[in-house]
Structures are given as C-alpha cells and as structure tokens.
C-alpha cells in the first residue's frame, strides 16, 4: 500500500503544481458573464499595451455565487456583467468595492454608473421588438404593453422569461406600471406565445423567418451580428427592428457593466483595465465589433446601428429597475411563464 500512497501524493502534488496560484507576474483575473470570444480582442489589445496578462473565466451562470463563496480568497479582480441586475446584485451582496477614478468618471456619464461608484456601465443595449418584415412590417407605434394584446395571439416568440435580459425588461415594466398590471401583462404575453420560451434571442428571429411567429423580443446587437453572419443573414433580413414605447416613457435599455471585486488581489491592474475598457479603443471595438452603444460620449456607434435611427430610452433610473428584480422573478413563477 505504501507505494500507492506515494503514487497518490505524487499525483496530487503535480496537480497542485500545475494549477498553483496566480504567480507574481503582472496579471488581472476576470469573471465574465460575457462570452469570452466577444471580449478577447479587447483584452488582447490591453495586454499588448500594458503587458498585463488577462485571465478570463466565462460562465453564463454562477459567477456571483462563486465569488460569494470564495470571499476574501477570491482570485477575481473584475466582474463583467451583461445586465444591470447582476451589477446591482454584486453591490447588494457586498462583493464589490467603489472605484474612484477620474478616467472612469470622465469616460462614463453619471447615469451609466453607480452613484456609489460600485458598478460602471461599459455599453448600453436596447431590448427591441423584432417584427416580421413580410407579415407585419415596421411597428413604430408599438409599446411593450401591446404584446399582451389578443391580436398577437400565437404570434410571439421569446427566450426564457428568466433570462436576465427579460427579467430586466419585466422589472422596468413593474417600475413603470406596478406589480399587478405587470402580472396581467405577463399572463397576456404568455397566452400569446407561439411556443414555449426557448433558445436565445437569435433563435426567435430565426423562428420569425421560418414562420413560427411574427414578433419577438431581442437585444439590438444580435441583429447586427446576424447580418454579418453568412448563415444567419437570411434570418435577420426577415425582420424589422422596432424601438417600443417611443410615444411615452421610451425603450428599455440595459447595460453591460464592470465592477471591482471587494478583495481584488491585483487592484491596480484591475482599475487600469476598467479605465481601458471605458476608453476610446475598447469602446470603439464594442461599437464596431459587437454593435452595442458605447457609453463614452463621442465614440460613434457603428454605421449599421446608426442606420436604425435615434430613439428615446426609458428614463427610469437603472437602479430603480434593478430593485424590482425579485418581484419580476416571483411574477414569472406565478404565471409559470416558462412552463
């Protein structure tokens, strides 16, 4: 048995050695809710300019829980989120710290950062309604509220109601119309669904092209991405992009954000990266490559995005919307939106 114990300890120590902690080289560790291939070109630029290596863990779910569990031992310096509710959750769970940086304050307008400087938006993204070019055409008058209207019976497609993008939209509805009305609205939308919520935002556009439904919810940048994808361009060409609630409170806008973790081990490098992300080079890549709206004033949106026109965005503060998140989740369960 002795031999096997020796063998076991050799194996164990080699495992430890191969994963041993983040060595002393210049680096910064990022927990990212964003697909890594979206941000890799930006990070590569950052490393090129500063020599600081960027390690990314991408996960669609569970990063906040992981951060919480790791506590002060966490290797993470930054968290990249894809919507406001995650950013607010980080603050609520006391997992992040404020950053005082002139560069950040200069680059990001006040409405796009936490008053307490615990989160910063890097881009904004619009929750659009896509409509079938062929069967509905452009819908300039449309409100989100109309999606519960019986005229859309069996014509709506969406991804899971529990997806953060939808939760944020529903939260904004609660903030605007109250809980009871929103529940009614959700029931109405559910009754209008052409199929059970499934897939991602692109799948819904595809479903419109294929005739399963006429309207779908989707973020703006997906249309840009699809138009630049050989296979998906046909889907994108089947839909019109609409900015709802233009006659009243405006279209719901979400953010992608960044926060510095409470126990960030590489704080200096992390702040450097935050500043880099909010600066021209990175903002431009966000706009050009990913078809998002850059937060930094003066950085132009891509040509395609600007061709969709100006629009009015919802004026309710993001922090207010994020507060309604638990209510939104509760309502989704109550109406069994996904089931």
């Amino acid at each position: 048995m002795k031999k096997s114990f020796i063998l076991a300890s050799v194996v164990l120590s080699s495992v430890l050695a191969s994963t041993s902690s983040w060595a002393a080289t210049e680096e910064v560790n990022v927990y990212s809710y964003r697909q890594s291939f979206l941000i890799e070109p930006i990070m590569a630029k950052f490393t090129e300019e500063t020599g600081v290596k960027v390690n990314i863990v991408f996960a669609k779910d569970g990063l906040i829980e992981r951060l919480e569990r790791e506590g002060k031992l966490s290797p993470a310096d930054l968290v990249l989120t894809t919507d406001i509710s995650r950013s607010v959750e980080l603050v609520e769970k006391d997992l992040v710290q404020p950053v005082q940086s002139e560069a950040l304050e200069g680059n990001i307008p006040a409405q796009y950062r936490d008053p307490a400087d615990q989160w910063f938006a890097l881009t904004t993204r619009v929750r659009n309604v896509y409509s079938s070019k062929e069967r509905l055409g452009k819908q300039p008058e449309l409100n989100y509220e109309d999606l519960a209207d019986a005229k859309f019976k069996g014509k709506i497609c969406t991804r899971s109601g529990k997806h953060p993008y939808n939760v944020a939209l529903i939260s904004s509805m609660i903030a605007a119309n109250g809980e009871a009305k929103t529940k009614q609205w959700l029931e109405g939308v559910k009754a209008n669904l052409a199929r059970k919520p499934q897939g991602n935002d692109r799948d819904q556009v595809k479903a419109i092209k294929e005739g399963f439904c006429d309207v779908s919810l989707g973020n703006n940048y997906y249309l840009g991405k699809m138009l630049n994808d050989e296979k998906q361009v046909a889907w994108a060409n089947a839909v019109e992009i609409n900015f709802p609630n233009q006659a009243n409170r405006g279209t719901h806008v979400n953010i992608s954000g960044v926060s510095l973790t409470k126990f960030a081990p590489n704080k200096d490098n992390a702040v450097k990266l935050m500043e880099f992300l909010s600066d021209d080079t990175a903002q431009k890549i966000y706009a050009e490559v990913n078809f998002e709206y850059p937060v930094k004033p003066g950085v132009a949106v891509s040509e395609l995005v600007s061709s969709w026109g100006e629009f009015k965005s919802d004026s309710i503060p993001l922090a207010e919307i994020a507060k309604q998140r638990p209510v939104a989740l509760k309502l989704l369960d109550e109406v069994k939106f996904d089931l």
């Binding site: 495992v15 430890l16 966490s74």
Partner: peptide, 15 residues
C-alpha cells in the same frame, strides 16, 4: 500568507 483557494479554486475541486 494564506495559500488562497487551494481547494475550491483549483483542479482539486474538479477532481
């Protein structure tokens, strides 16, 4: 100085 996340943050957790 603590070794950091020796257990939960390495391949050990996976193993």
């Amino acid at each position: 100085k603590g070794p950091g996340l020796l257990f939960s943050g390495t391949m050990l957790a996976l193993i």
